[in-house]
Design a protein around this nucleic acid. Structure first.
Length: 484
RNA sequence: GGCGGGUUGGCGGAGAGGUUACGCAGCGGAUUGCAAAUCCGUGAAGACCGGUUCGAUUCCGGUACCCGCCUCCA
């Protein structure tokens, strides 16, 4: 069996991955807060852990991996958006508006991540479906002396957990010295964080032993991971920005509530995304969503390829140039493996790269070698392990790969003009026949002019010993083709 | 202030204490009416200063610069 090595943030070392139960390898990844479209940075953990999910399925079997990724649908920003709509005169109840907002956002999220070729996780729990589990966990923490209720709030007693700060390498005293912690009258200690907070009448809330309120963010993940994966599971993933405080707090809650378990054994964090060398932020004006890129015509597979070109543990810069290069490579590969039956297993070199702490960039390099060696079956099977060259993502390729494939798809494009029906394929063939005749007569000016005209509408013509072939470019303009 | 990441050839980007990364671009050649594509070949690196070593881009220490987290912005 392939040996997987993963860098464990908890130990800051690359370790051999040894699952608790190879029949059921369990992974939890922090999912999105569903208040708006996912921005490009949100896509990084999705893609990184999708590759890990695929790798684990490859090694342990598709039915032996459980991947849980939550939706945080209790959040002030969601409430704010719903209240905004309410204030604009929407007659529906706040609860309805909130539900509409989260449903809509989850739909968007699925659409966008599907477009990036990410597999759906095994389970996608929503925080609002597990409020009971959260309340039970909070009660348990209070009973064990790790939490206390005060003025409708429940706080976690950070000083009661000696391991606090271990994951992120911080000491509680240093953090206090940093003086960025919120001091509130209901806190015993400034470091204590909220497990439950009261809701006012104009906010969503659930009845609890501490009054009507809502859970804190951190308890959501602790409760849902415990319900779905148990006291101990294998991998917990997320962005490095979540390491503190979110993951630190999760560990504190789970370790104190379930001391008999080990919670997550391996912690993995992906580094951040940057745009042209800067953090993506609304204030810098370089903020954009996955959907923005897709709408610009950048295929999801291209975005995915760019992400996989950089190791997950390093900051990744999104640039237009990278997208261009990725698209060229994918177009070439898609042309190569068209009609090729994938090998039954990925190439050992690619599998080895991924098994070595998810070295996706190394895997891509190995795939270039496979392409160079002509091992197309191996290339296709290996690409699928990375979620590339899959049928799910081929929608953009119809106008990008070989002329032959384009031709098949172009048959679907029919034009009615002057009382007859003509397809794109027929139209181009007609023009190329005229050009072929011109070349035969050595009228190269005319031949080149036809080629230039076709190029101008997005059709690339290539001469081969067997005659001319053509392919459609992404900027193919059907309407203008009929004008030629 | 505390914690963490980065710095590799023109660009992107990996691994390995000593042996070609890889891709794109470039250059030379084959092919072509010309292109495109393809094929063959090829130059080019390791921020800076020390240390360990027979030998370091790879290990250790320091410096500089860039970036992020510490603010429920992944």
């Amino acid at each position: 069996m392939t040996t997987i090595r993963l860098t464990n943030t908890k130990t800051r070392a690359k370790e051999v991955f040894d699952p608790i139960d190879p029949q059921n390898v369990r992974m939890y990844v922090c999912g999105p807060t569903v208040y708006d479209r996912a921005h490009l940075g949100n896509a990084r953990p999705v893609i990184v852990f999708d590759v890990l999910f695929r790798l684990l399925r490859q090694v342990y079997g598709a039915d032996h991996v459980t991947y849980v990724r939550n939706f945080t649908d209790v959040d002030d920003k969601i409430n704010a958006e719903a209240q905004r709509r309410k204030s604009l005169g929407d007659p529906r109840s706040l609860e309805d508006l909130i539900r509409e907002r989260t449903e809509e956002t989850i739909r968007w999220y699925h659409d966008d991540m599907d477009a990036l070729g990410a597999l759906r996780p095994t389970r996608e729990p929503r925080a609002t479906e597990w409020i009971g589990a959260m309340i039970a966990m909070i009660e348990d923490l209070i009973a064990k002396g790790h939490a206390y209720a005060k003025d409708g709030h429940v706080l976690f007693r950070v000083r009661s957990y000696e391991g606090y700060g271990k994951l992120s390498g911080r000491s509680v005293d240093d953090m206090i010295a940093g003086a960025r912690v919120e001091v509130a009258p209901f806190k015993e200690d400034p470091m204590d964080f909220v497990l439950w907070k009261p809701s006012t009448d104009d906010l969503p809330g659930w009845d609890s032993p501490w009054g009507r309120g809502r859970p804190g963010w951190h308890i959501e993940c602790s409760a849902m991971s415990h319900e779905l994966l148990g006291d101990s599971f294998d991998i917990h993933g997320g962005g490095i920005d979540l390491q503190f405080p979110h993951h630190e707090n999760e560990i504190a809650q789970s370790a104190c509530a379930h001391p008999e378990g080990s919670f997550a054994r391996v912690w993995m964090h992906n580094e951040m995304l940057q745009v042209e060398g800067k953090k993506m932020s609304k204030s810098l004006g370089n903020f954009f969503t996955v959907r923005d890129l897709l709408d610009k015509g950048i295929p999801g597979e291209v975005i995915r390829f760019v992400f996989l070109s950089t190791h997950y543990s390093k900051p990744m810069d999104w640039t237009e140039e990278k997208a261009k290069q990725a698209e060229a490579t994918l177009r070439k590969w898609r042309g190569l493996v068209e009609d090729v039956e994938p090998a039954t297993t990925p190439a050992p070199s690619v599998l080895a790269a991924l098994a070595d702490d998810l070295n996706t960039a190394g895997g891509i390099a190995e795939m270039h070698k496979l392409a160079g060696e002509g091992d197309l079956a191996g290339l296709k099977a290996s690409a699928e392990l990375l979620g590339l060259l899959t049928p799910q993502l081929e929608d953009w390729a119809w106008r990008a790969v070989t002329g032959r494939m384009n031709a098949e798809l172009a048959r679907g494009y029919v034009m009615r003009a002057q009382g007859h029906v003509e397809t794109v394929e027929e139209r181009i063939s007609t023009l190329l026949q005229v050009r072929a005749d011109a070349r035969k007569d050595k009228d190269f000016r005319k031949a080149d002019s036809i080629r230039d005209d076709l190029l101008a509408v997005g059709v690339i013509v290539k001469d081969t010993p067997d005659g001319a072939t053509w392919e459609l470019m992404p900027d193919f303009d059907e309407a203008r083709l009929w004008g030629l």
